[in-house]
Each structure stands twice: as structure tokens, then as C-alpha cells.
């Protein structure tokens, strides 16, 4: 069997993005299960301490293209290099971050290689498959698991006949884990100069305004999160009041973001951020599976909802049946009264 590859994104600081390190950690586990090697691909410009940073994640090979035209990311030169590499190396599995980069380039590559791709997976596993129609048995496929259809179902997707098996995964879904600080792999360089043609640069970047996000809910210890049931952007201010008192951050569901109550960078769930706080206070959140996928590993969950049968209540440690507008001011009041 061939190897597992992870496309590594380069951050603004010219190091490897967190989402890619998380995928390398997951890739290492999958590689162990399959008995294959883990290979990283880095297309960038003067990345600092590349080998020292990546090998500890259990990376056996780094394919590295060092060319100043490769940063910032552009679709065409990156896909030209990846398609060439995959045609030569024939990976078993390729993983991408489900970011504006991964979700831009992965489908283009899947189309060129005519292979299968599953977006926004919340879990990846190895398993077998028996195809009834052809009576054919497949060993050790990548199970690409994701919620679908408004979160009412969880689908397991496979690519029985085509390779590579490709998937994208959001930041925070997998855990970043160093396997061995002394792990050693080898560096192979990609001949970017030889492979890239002028037509790969017909899209040019004119300007960039990139700000480091001020929101860091991924690492928050306590999160006060609001859903559509909060009712308005105005009402969300109350969540901030509670968050301030508790030293918490504010999150939101997709429905609340779509309704304009909160900004996208605070969205928690399959198409937002995945969080694992010690306390998650879900306010007016019904609990669609896409949302739960992003928060169900919270150590303690409080649900505040007028609907006693809201799905979120079934994963909550404490359920308060009632209106968010009544309950939050009481929480603030009694926290202040009792915390002295």
C-alpha cells in the first residue's frame, strides 16, 4: 500500500499552520494503522526550521518546494506541483485543511486526478467494505465521516476504486500531538522552477489585508454560545455581559451567524470552529448535529432553552428550561453574589 500525504499550509508567519499539524497528527495514526509512511508537502518560500518542526509529528518524508512565487498561496502553481507529485507518488490518502486554501485547491486536484473528495470530515477511520453489487471486497479503506443534509444524518463516504482517497478537515477537529521529538525523516525537494510555467501565474495577487484574528474561541476555557433562539444581535449583548463576568468567550451557531446576530469568526460547528472548553453554555441553541460536532467534547455543558425536547438538552449536564432573556441576568446576579 502507498503512503499518506498531508498538504501543509503555510501561515502568515511563514511556518506551518495549526490545521496542517493537526492533520499530520491524524495522518500519523492512520499511517500506523495501515503500516505505511506519512509524507508532508510544503510549498512555500523560505520556511523556517521546517524539518525541526515537522519530523516530531512522525513525518517520514517532507516534499518541499522553495520558491518565492509560492507564497502567498495561488491556486494554479500549487495545483500544478501537487498534480505532478501525486501522479508520480500515487498516494493512498491525501488530507487537506478545510480552509479557504484547502477547499480551493483540493477539488481542483480531485477533478484533474478523477478521484473522490469529501469535504469537512468530522472523523476519519480505516475500515473494510463489501460491495454487494459486484461481490467485491475492499480492505482498509478510508472512512470519511461527516454530517450531511442540515445535520439530520451522518454519512460515511468511501472511495473504493479510485486513488488517492482525499478529504478536507476543519481546524480544531483533530488533535495536534507530537509523537516523538527525536523522530527523523528526510527532505525531498520539488523542482518548482522546472515545473511551473508562465500560464500558472495568470492570476496575480494585487493586494492583501490580512489581520491576525482577535477572536480565539478555539482555546477558550469557558464559552457562552448563542443560537437562533437568542433572537437578535441586540440580545447577543447579554451573552457578552455573562461572558465578561465569567471570563469567557462568546460563540454562535451557524443559524445565528446566518441571521446576522454574530460574526462568522465566532461560529462553532462543522463549518466553523471546533472547541473543547471546560464549560459550554448553550443559549437558545437547538443543537443540530453540525453544531454538536464542534462542541460535544466540552467537559461540562449547560443548555438554556424554552424547548424541553431540544436535542442539545440530551448532551447537556444541566438543562434550564426557560427564556434566555430571563435567565442570563439571573446567572450574572447569582454568580456575583456567590463568587466572593
Amino acid at each position: 500500500m502507498n503512503n499518506i500525504f498531508v498538504y501543509c499550509e503555510v501561515s502568515e508567519e511563514k511556518s506551518i499552520s495549526d490545521v496542517s499539524l493537526e492533520l499530520l497528527s491524524k495522518g500519523r495514526k492512520l499511517a500506523n494503522e495501515l503500516g505505511v509512511k506519512l509524507e508532508a508537502i510544503v510549498l512555500g518560500d523560505k520556511i523556517e526550521n521546517l524539518e525541526g518542526n515537522l519530523y516530531p509529528y512522525g513525518v517520514d518524508v517532507i516534499h518541499y518546494a522553495d520558491d518565492k512565487r509560492l507564497f502567498p498561496f495561488l491556486t494554479l502553481p500549487h495545483s500544478t506541483l501537487l498534480i505532478d507529485l501525486f501522479k508520480k507518488e500515487k498516494p493512498e490518502v491525501v488530507l487537506f485543511g478545510a480552509t479557504s486554501i484547502g477547499r480551493d485547491i483540493a477539488p481542483r486536484i480531485a477533478s484533474a486526478l478523477r478521484c473522490g473528495l469529501t469535504a469537512d470530515c468530522t472523523s476519519l477511520e480505516i475500515g473494510d467494505h463489501f460491495e454487494n453489487r459486484t461481490q467485491k471486497e475492499y480492505k482498509s479503506l478510508l472512512y470519511q465521516i461527516r454530517p450531511a443534509f442540515g445535520g439530520n444524518i451522518i454519512a460515511t463516504i468511501i472511495n473504493p476504486d479510485t486513488r488517492p482517497q482525499m478529504a478536507t478537515v476543519r481546524e480544531g477537529v483533530m488533535k495536534k500531538e507530537i509523537v516523538n521529538p527525536n523522530y527523523k525523516g528526510k527532505l525531498k525537494s520539488i523542482d518548482a522552477k522546472g515545473l511551473l510555467k508562465d500560464e500558472d501565474f495568470i492570476v496575480q495577487i494585487i493586494e492583501r489585508h490580512i489581520e491576525k484574528s482577535k477572536v480565539n474561541i478555539k482555546n477558550a476555557g469557558i464559552i457562552v454560545s448563542g443560537g437562533y433562539g437568542v433572537g437578535s444581535r441586540e440580545n447577543f449583548k447579554m451573552l457578552y455581559d455573562l461572558a465578561e463576568v465569567l471570563g469567557a468567550d462568546v460563540g454562535a451557531t451557524r443559524a445565528a451567524v446566518d441571521a446576522g446576530f454574530e460574526d462568522h469568526e465566532r461560529q462553532i460547528g462543522q463549518t466553523g470552529v471546533t472547541v473543547r472548553p471546560k464549560l459550554y453554555i448553550a443559549c437558545g441553541i437547538s443543537g443540530a448535529v453540525q453544531h454538536r460536532a464542534g462542541m460535544d467534547q466540552s467537559a461540562q455543558i449547560i443548555s438554556i432553552n424554552t424547548d424541553p425536547n431540544a436535542p442539545i438538552n440530551f448532551i447537556a449536564d444541566y438543562t434550564i428550561i426557560g427564556n434566555v432573556n430571563d435567565i442570563i441576568p439571573k446567572m450574572i446576579k447569582y454568580y456575583k453574589k456567590n463568587s466572593k
Binding site: 478521484c115 473522490g116 467494505h129 439530520n152 440530551f314 448532551i315 426557560g322 439571573k330 447569582y334
Partner: peptide
């Protein structure tokens, strides 16, 4: 190339949840 191997209806694992009301004494207890 992609096939759906399995579709699962979402079944919630029922946790033993402590049920509270919006009454002041419940919120204060929490």
C-alpha cells in the same frame, strides 16, 4: 468515485441531565 457506505440517523446518546427551571432558586443553586 465517492460512494455513500452508510447513512445514520442521528441518535443522541442520552446523558443524565440535571433539569432546572428559570426560578431564582434553581439558577442560584446552579
Amino acid at each position: 468515485p465517492t460512494k455513500v457506505k452508510k447513512i445514520e440517523n442521528v441518535v443522541l446518546a442520552h446523558k443524565e441531565s440535571t433539569r432546572l427551571t428559570a426560578d431564582d432558586k434553581d439558577v442560584e443553586w446552579l
